[in-house]
Design a protein around this nucleic acid. Structure first.
Length: 207
DNA sequence: AAGCCGCCCAACCGCACAGGG
DNA sequence: ACCCTGTGCGGTTGGGCGGCT
């Protein structure tokens, strides 16, 4: 790439990549004692070899005690769809209406699940369109794809097929019936410590 | 059993904006 | 009025993991 590795050469102290448990604890402890904000000086004062940006992101997206982790509930799915139809990719704005959810999480959710679902829906609609066109015209010629494209103009993400159908993903996603179960994360976080662990360790360490 | 492929998510990057000096 | 620094936001990437062939 054409990017200069100036940071790594001039400032080898700056760490990148996944956060370690130790770093998380340092950040949590520091914020518990001094509060959040002024991230650049926080990064320096805490002794973390991270940028302020990185500290902020880690805190907001993962370490904050009020961050809700686990599957997006059907209600949240609907809300995301509605708000996205209204505001587009204003993830932080959407996140403000979903307590405990981060813009990053919503963004990822949208990209991985909903966009995929929309594509599938569009494909299905196109295929149905093809079939109906074929049935309507009894032509069976090679021009069906063109016809179907005209019959189903490409819709944007605010696909009207979602709005009003209060059942966006009836079978595709596991539905959480018990909110308390979302905090166990047995399978999801095998390689990670849960936030409860971290916070209890934080308390054990003393602040 | 091994390799491949696709999905998911944490983290990084670049840009824009706001506030202070 | 201008510049600098910090912060916030949206887009993108890379690695881990599970399912499939």
């Amino acid at each position: 790439m054409d990017k200069k590795p100036c940071n790594s050469s001039q400032d080898p102290e700056v760490r990148k990549g996944p956060w370690t448990m130790e770093e998380d604890l340092i950040l949590i402890n520091y914020i518990a004692n001094h509060g959040e904000g002024v991230w650049n000086s926080l990064a320096k004062a805490s002794g973390l070899k991270r940028t302020g940006k990185s500290c902020r992101l880690r805190w907001l997206n993962y370490l904050r005690p009020d961050v809700r982790r686990g599957n997006i509930t059907p209600e949240e799915q609907l809300l995301i769809i509605e708000l996205h139809a209204k505001w587009g990719n204003r993830w932080s704005k959407i996140a403000k209406h979903l307590p405990g959810r981060t813009d990053n999480e919503i963004k990822n959710f949208w990209r991985t699940r909903i966009q995929k679902h929309i594509k599938q829906t569009e494909n299905q609609q196109q295929q149905r369109g093809n079939i109906s066109e074929i049935n309507n015209h009894h032509q069976g010629s090679t021009s069906t794809s063109k016809v179907s494209t005209m019959a189903h103009p490409i819709v944007t993400y605010s696909s009207p097929s979602y709005q009003g159908s209060l059942e966006p993903f009836p079978t595709q996603f596991p539905i959480i019936t018990d909110q308390s179960s979302c905090c166990t994360n047995d399978d999801n976080n095998n390689n990670y410590w849960s936030m409860e662990d971290i916070w209890s360790m934080n308390l054990l360490n003393g602040d």
